[in-house]
Write a protein that binds this DNA or RNA. Structure first.
Lengths: 184, 184
DNA sequence: CAAGATACGCTACTTCGAGTAGCGTAATCG
DNA sequence: CGATTACGCTACTCGAAGTAGCGTATCTTG
């Protein structure tokens, strides 16, 4: 339990998180989710494929970590519930619009449907934290927040999946307005 | 161009559409989208895998055809715009809730993200017809209908993908209410 | 400066599913 | 019957995820 003093003997792990995440997003945005194979990501990161697998147990886990890094904590802004929700939605939409992020998100989401283990990772590590944050900020029951997340994320990802392009601002605005009328 | 008289010489094609579709949905609902390999579907249909590939150029194409068959034409009910939209949403939600349909839908949708050709098939053969029907019935511009489809389908699929279960009626009701307030 | 421990790079592998090729056989029309 | 077309089957190719094991590099500790 020396978590605070990780200076164990032996060669230290090289600090490749930032490099790997950047390489992942770059590969995904250039080659698409399918084209971004672990081999290519490894090459893009200047690292051996086996090294990637020493850190992440699967491609899905790598992508989820990459997304966690890309999204970071929600920055809720505003004072009343409406402002908070609007800021959250705009924030997600903007993040999903960043190069590689939307495609990577849609990609893992797809894989997760086929892979229960990945679905658990996705749900617990990516969705849960935001659900909790929103639940505290908005004071709504959890099933309501989950529906809200389904609506916002589902809509944005569906657009991304169908067209390959992120949703334009005008449509995001309509989405915000619609959600506010029901959940605000 | 004897399309109306397909009685050319030779062994006639066996009528396997219904069998194949049933086998596909059954395989997907029992084994999940990933587990429903072409081999297994072929076995479930009592047919050789190569025969499946003689009809459908890819697994994605088979699934899309299967979904087209499962969904069938929209049955819009009601007289005013609100009733029409509500009936359409309940219809989609119910269809997606049928065994195998939701998982199959979410599955192709995933694959389509990785596969531009499949995305085209999905968009043109599955989304377009319903878009046109809705556009005529509701008299809205196409970008608005597309957003509507993103919202409804995206939400339902996101729930399906995250939980593996179709959305419960209460949540569908909230979805309907919300959409009606904006698009009704 | 060793000695031990740990991580990395590399090559080669396994596994599994999509999709293909080609042969022998079954069904149908004339 | 003969031509034609489709089916079943076996055996492939191909590509990507993930693994094994060896030699080497880089640390910490004595």
């Amino acid at each position: 339990m020396q978590s605070s003093t990780p200076s164990a003997a032996g060669r230290p792990r090289s600090d490749l998180h930032a490099t790997a995440f950047a390489a992942t997003l770059r590969s995904v945005s250039e080659l698409g989710y399918a084209g971004a194979t672990m081999d290519r990501i490894a090459v893009a990161a200047g690292v051996a494929k086996t090294t990637l697998y020493r850190r992440w147990p699967s491609k899905g886990a790598l992508i989820v970590d990459c997304l966690l890094d890309a999204f970071g904590p929600v920055r809720l802004q505003g004072t009343d519930r409406g402002e908070i929700m609007a800021s959250a939605i705009h924030w997600v939409a903007a993040k999903i619009g960043e190069p590689g992020v939307g495609a990577a998100f849609a990609g893992v989401f797809s894989d997760a449907i086929n892979d229960p283990a990945l679905r658990t990772i996705l749900s617990e590590r990516l969705q849960e934290p935001y659900r909790l944050t929103l639940q505290e900020a908005l004071g709504e029951p959890d099933d309501r927040i989950l529906l809200l997340i389904d609506i916002v994320t589902g809509t944005l990802l569906h657009r991304m999946g169908m067209t390959g392009e992120p949703m334009v601002d005008a449509d995001v605005a309509v989405l915000v307005e619609m959600v506010l009328r029901t959940f605000g």
